[in-house]
Simulated scan of single mutants.
Amino acid sequence: MVTLSWQAPTALAAILFAIGMLGLLARRSLVFVLMSIEIMLNAVALLFITAGMRWGDPQGQIMFIFVINLAGAEIALGLILLLRLRARITTLDGDKATLLRDVKA
């Protein structure tokens, strides 16, 4: 049986989270923002699995299932909101979404 150290998956999770954070901060398109959040959630799920493996506890796998369910709900609601936003304005730029505010002076 091959044993895997916990440092390698933890480093991979950190790299994935950093890529997601970089994509979240660098991009303006709301589709890329949603994809970056999805990458960050996958990194957290990998970290839960790694922690469960490290301590021999199945709670990491249970939390993984919760994170995957959360990611599915986030992407479904995010895509619905993007479709509704696309119907009101012609672009998916995050800065243009501030035009939807109902400002009454």
Rank of each mutant, 00 (worst) to 15 (best):
A71M: 12
L99E: 14
L83K: 09
S5I: 07
F64P: 09
E38L: 07
V33S: 00
Q59F: 12
M21Y: 14
A76E: 00
L12K: 06
S5P: 10
D95S: 11
A11T: 13
G78C: 00
I89E: 06
V33A: 00
S5H: 12
G52A: 05
L22R: 14
A11V: 13
G94F: 01
L12C: 07
L41Q: 04
M53D: 09
L41V: 06
F17H: 07
L47Q: 05
L30N: 00
I39N: 06
I39Y: 03
L83E: 13
L30S: 01
Q59P: 12
I75D: 02
L4K: 04
T50D: 10
F66P: 11
I68V: 14
Q61E: 14
T50G: 07
K96T: 09
L25I: 04
M63I: 15
I65W: 11
M1W: 11
L83C: 15
K104G: 13
L79D: 02
L30Q: 02
V44R: 09
L81W: 01
I65S: 11
A71N: 11
G72H: 00
G23D: 05
A14Q: 07
G72P: 06
L92S: 01
L70N: 11
D102P: 03
D95I: 06
G20M: 01
G23Q: 02
M63C: 15
M63R: 15
I62G: 07
P9H: 02
L30P: 00
T50A: 13
S36M: 06
K104P: 10
R101M: 11
L82C: 01
